[in-house]
Design a protein around this nucleic acid. Structure first.
Length: 205
DNA sequence: TCTGGGATCGGCT
DNA sequence: GCCGATCCCAGAC
């Protein structure tokens, strides 16, 4: 597929659905990141849904509606960027039905374009295993230079980072599992809200 | 003002 | 598999 063709951007309506549905349908789509004149493109191969005030795994279920989580209640299609530990961030997109809250976490991407730039951002050398470049939420943010300054950024209207239609992923190519690294979620950690593309070499684990 | 917790990563055993 | 890094800011005093 030619990367210069007219990619169709996802519209606001796409994200006005249950986070679980959005997470699943985001598989195979492309994230476009523009930094000055540089363009980085990654195919979405792994996502997790976080949503609903009942979900003990998501920030809303844990903290309620606070300044931190306010974005998850707001306009869908915006970036929700959350810091974890040191110098590490996670990229989410806000997605929920009206009057609710939720989001989708990007856990792994397949690098498509701008691979040298990604390697540079991660301070890796040329021989670094490409399948491990963006195989984790922290590395996505570092590799695509996504920082707190993009928290709340509108990925529907904005040009610095957005999502476009990609490859159609068949139902039998999708594997559903429970989410990663949320031991605090009680029984909600078993919810089958993680979606991965079967046989992808670019997954987080 | 101060302090703790956080949806991780990479390196070592 | 387990451990340590030593940032940021919301909420508590």
């Amino acid at each position: 597929m030619g990367v210069n063709s007219d990619f169709k951007r996802l519209n606001r309506e796409f994200f006005k659905r249950e986070p679980v549905v959005v997470a699943k349908e985001l598989l195979g789509k492309y994230i476009i990141r523009k930094i000055d004149s540089e363009i980085i493109i990654g195919k979405i191969v792994e996502t997790e849904a976080y949503g609903g005030t009942e979900d003990k795994g998501c920030h809303v279920g844990r903290y309620g509606r606070t300044k931190k989580t306010e974005l998850l209640f707001g306009e869908v299609g915006k970036a929700y960027i959350y810091p974890v530990y040191i110098n590490t961030y996670c990229l989410n997109v806000v997605a929920h039905k009206d009057n609710k809250a939720g989001g989708v976490l990007f856990r792994a991407l397949e690098p498509i374009l701008g691979i040298e730039k990604i390697i540079e951002n991660l301070n890796k050398d040329k021989n670094y295993d490409i399948t491990k470049l963006l195989n984790g939420p922290g590395k996505i943010c570092k590799g695509l230079k996504i920082g707190r300054d993009l928290n709340g950024y509108d990925m529907i209207e904005g040009d610095e980072i957005y999502i476009v239609e990609g490859e159609k992923v068949k139902e039998d190519e999708i594997i559903t599992t429970s989410r990663i690294n949320i031991p605090y979620a009680g029984k909600d950690k078993y919810l089958p809200w993680r979606f991965i593309i079967k046989d992808s070499k670019f997954l987080s684990r």
